[in-house]
Design a protein around this nucleic acid. Sequence first.
DNA 1: CAATCTTAAGTATACGTTTACTTAAAACTG
DNA 2: CAGTTTTAAGTAAACGTATACTTAAGATTG
Lengths: 340, 340
Amino acid sequence: MPNATIKDVAKEAQVSTATVSRVLNDNYFVSPELKQKVMDAIEKLNYYPNSVARSLKNESTQTIGLIVSDISNSFFTIVNRSVEDIVKPRDYNLIVCSTDNQKDKEYSYLQLLLEKKVDGIILNTTGYNYDFVASVSQHLPIVLCGRKIENPFFKGDFVDSDNQTGSYKLTRHTIELGHRKIGIIGGQQSISSGTERLEGFRHAMATIDIKVDASYPYQFVGDYNRAQSGYEGARYLMSLQDPPTAILAMNNELAIGALRYFRTHGIEVPDQVSFACYGNIRNSDLFYVQPDTVDMDPRVIGSKAGEMLIERIEYKNQLPNRELRFTPGLVKGNTLKRIV
Amino acid sequence: MPNATIKDVAKEAQVSTATVSRVLNDNYFVSPELKQKVMDAIEKLNYYPNSVARSLKNESTQTIGLIVSDISNSFFTIVNRSVEDIVKPRDYNLIVCSTDNQKDKEYSYLQLLLEKKVDGIILNTTGYNYDFVASVSQHLPIVLCGRKIENPFFKGDFVDSDNQTGSYKLTRHTIELGHRKIGIIGGQQSISSGTERLEGFRHAMATIDIKVDASYPYQFVGDYNRAQSGYEGARYLMSLQDPPTAILAMNNELAIGALRYFRTHGIEVPDQVSFACYGNIRNSDLFYVQPDTVDMDPRVIGSKAGEMLIERIEYKNQLPNRELRFTPGLVKGNTLKRIV
DNA sequence: CAATCTTAAGTATACGTTTACTTAAAACTG
DNA sequence: CAGTTTTAAGTAAACGTATACTTAAGATTG
């Protein structure tokens, strides 16, 4: 037996479908007797509503898309969970998508969510589809998470840590510990956090008159989503003729790769090289060293993104663009050492 | 301007909606001229199909529900990703739900996915809603993941590591290293993997004539989803008058908690107590010790679950119940030490 | 108490698709 | 070439719900 529909319930209760619908939605007066009859019929037929039909009629799916570079990155894992915790009580669900930072995948997921008529999207964009994202944003509530979009026509919100300040703080701190040859393993420059963190680094280095440009020797551009690329960055920097005395990894994945390189190659941290990174690393309290980090809580970012998106949905996207930046602090570890 | 519909396209191309639909689905001959006109109209109006309407008509949403205890547990994070990678090419999407192992949450998510008319569910069940799950399984393809269901009427598949064997192997190995006082931090007994792993432990202990029952002193029942509970387990066991010489944690979260306890309380592993756990721990190669583990790859489990579910969907749930068990091996670390 | 207002419930349409059924014209056939 | 078959395209119904509109009966009014 296929599922009962509202018609079956109506027939069973000897009322019209309108009455059944009214009982279900409790948005119109129905006499107690009929209400009871409907309830009984629902019970008897084991009826439950069909959301698809409801969505078609209501033009709202109560579904939110979450597009991130990689849901198995522990940062996004927590973001995912935090968003879920925020939206579930408001009766929203999450469709989760990983782009692997590929333009095509992001594009096709956006298209798909559009077709699925999601009510809104939380997007950690690749940065490559800015025009398309901007165009989608005209009609669909979007909160960008961690990565800004270039297009001035973009409509929506943005949540992130204050990358430039965080990176500046971290670099300044490293400088104050006496370091001058400071290596950086950065992320893609197509991504706002990639450029902003580099910018913070650059500004801090400028305070000691070191110019960070194409000729800066201690720079490696990695991929935020591949720990392996942090590994390669560490190898590159440590293989230089005159290696840096400190290395800063610009996100958690890169940091994991770098630490892996150090460990597997017997490079003592911080005795042989100091180290720090942007962003907390899950369970790093159990690591063989405790990296000094720029604190960035995915929980807060996820919750805020969820809240902002729901607001935007409720206001039918009729809100000014908003930007929320969390100013990060430094968390002391034992991988940054003063040098003389 | 709201989105164009198939009617708008039909009008623009001066054909019927049927023709447009046929062009879209490419499932019926349409003359090249008309086809071109339709394509042009689609292009011009920036039309894309409405999945909700399509789903209503087709009775298929191309959506799969993934219900797990906690999506931020690194094991499920990887499962999630693996499932996504399997189902995406088949045009399925994932709605992800975390139950926190609570009966009510699982129930309401199941109900919700039912209403959303998902095409199938991958379920890491709490174990509490077995009757409901069994009843849902009659009509909707379900693949259980990691936790079996009691009800004999359940219809569907089951994927897991071979818990009993894995746990037996691990315990036997520990015994062979000379341990006799072996502590176990287990999971909920409402969960099949909880009981099975305990059972493997029990069998192995029986080989040295130690009976593991309610009176067994070195047992702590924890919560698979809370590392904190592994911490408490380790504290409990190490605080005993005559503490165990080895402790086995029955999943990755419990293991993390236990290691945390050891580390923060200066308990040397393996000198003061040996340790091992069931299931890989993410990035444990960077930990201060490398736990000996029973290998369990979430990638394989996720992929298989995805594949089996899709098969089950394609065969309209007309398949015998299947059970897939991965026989796990031991991975050597440095936390298990021979004692004399 | 006739005229008007209120209201509980029903009728029927719409949401955007897909497709069974229909139709008209073209292509065969003997 | 009249009769039959094929076929490209159109018409209209259906998926399950929500609700604007309608209706009939009861309540209210002067």
